[in-house]
């Protein structure tokens, strides 16, 4: 009898699900009064709860900006911690409204899994870390090395590709979590630790003697990380995409959390005026109020400010802007015009 009740509930809820999906994501978020945002269960600098239980980090800041743009309150976010396995189904099933969990934008995730990537908030790539005592200065000298590698990730496949292409061999040491990998690497179980270079930097920063370890210059993969939403709700995808673009454009245009009050009143630069809503009706085009971008940027500052406060060179993680600099500075960040 228990099982039949169980399956009866399943069937009934399947019917309800069909009926309820008519509501758009924007309406759902507004009626709930909060944004459900999927983040990782903990990744240094990108998303982690602080001692007071408040989520902090680079990915978290994107969620807060979207919540501020849509609801006017950057704290109106319900953070759902997702693992590598649960993240996609949590998004597909509607448990979360957007996913900001250092997720690589790939063809199959975009096309086959049915998600829309709203842009790229961090350009990452896989790198190698070695102990300086080995005297290795290039990944090309790693032939025969033992490599700590997290299993079940794209990094594992990239590693195999890289060594095959370059005609080298290696011995993998399979590892489950990053914390475990740090212990193994420090204990000397492997010569090399490979991971996204942002993660390597964070890992190295946590070592007792970071100076003894070098991150090799070779980057062997492209990992554009970005927020994702469900396919089929273009209005919502636009909101997330343009919130991210507003953060990037704000840095380019010199709009910061310090001067935004002043600039929102109106400036000589028509693009700033259009973006911040003192001219034109951009917000109304996707169903938000005209000061949406002001609220998004006020939440945590522009892209550069967020970067600096969460993962930048002043933080323990100490990442340089690199590819993540504005296009005017030789990076890849290039927000389309607000027009």
């Amino acid at each position: 009898m228990k099982t039949s009740v169980f399956y009866g509930t399943l069937a009934a809820s399947a019917l309800l699900a069909g009926a309820a999906s008519a509501q758009s994501t924007l309406e759902t978020v507004q009626s709930n009064g909060e944004l459900s945002c999927g983040v990782s269960t903990g990744l240094a600098g990108f998303s982690a709860p602080d001692a007071n239980g408040v989520w902090q980090g680079f990915d978290v800041a994107v969620c807060r900006a979207v919540a501020a743009a849509v609801l006017g309150d950057p704290m109106a976010v319900n953070f759902v911690s997702t693992t590598g396995q649960t993240r996609f189904s949590a998004l597909a099933s509607g448990e979360i409204d957007m996913l900001a969990r250092n997720t690589t934008w790939t063809f199959s995730r975009d096309v086959d899994l049915g998600f829309t990537f709203a842009g790229v908030n961090y350009y990452d790539g896989q790198g190698f870390m070695v102990n300086r005592e080995l005297g290795v200065s290039s990944a090309m000298e790693l032939s025969g090395a033992t490599v700590c590698i997290q299993t079940g990730t794209t990094t594992e496949l990239n590693l195999a590709d890289f060594f095959r292409v370059n005609g080298m061999d290696y011995e993998p040491v399979p590892i489950e979590t990053n914390a475990e990998a740090q212990q193994q690497y420090l204990a000397g179980a492997c010569d090399v630790y490979t991971k996204d270079s942002s993660g390597l930097a964070a890992t190295r920063a946590s070592f007792p003697e970071p100076g003894n370890h070098a991150i090799l210059p070779e980057i062997i993969s492209k990992e554009p990380l970005g927020p994702a939403v469900r396919q089929g709700d273009d209005q919502w995808a636009d909101i997330v995409r343009w919130t991210l673009n507003a953060l990037i454009a704000a840095e380019e245009l010199g709009v910061t959390s310090a001067n935004i009050e002043e600039l929102a009143a109106g400036t000589d630069n028509p693009e700033i005026n259009r973006m911040l809503g003192s001219a034109g009706e951009l917000g109304a085009m996707f169903g938000l109020e005209s000061d949406w971008a002001v609220r998004a940027i006020s939440a945590g500052g522009n892209y550069g400010e967020i970067f600096a406060s969460t993962i930048g060179e002043q933080t323990p993680i100490g990442l340089a802007r690199g590819l993540n600099a504005q296009w005017t500075q030789g990076g890849l960040l290039y927000a389309p015009p607000f027009r």
Binding site: T41, A48, T83, A179, F207, I317
Partner: peptide, 26 residues
Amino acid sequence: VVFIGLLDPIGLSNAIRADTNWNGIY
């Protein structure tokens, strides 16, 4: 339950480690 993203003690140990203050503690 850590595998489905619930923050039980083991899950929280991960989250605590992700804080830059405590990254590296094991």
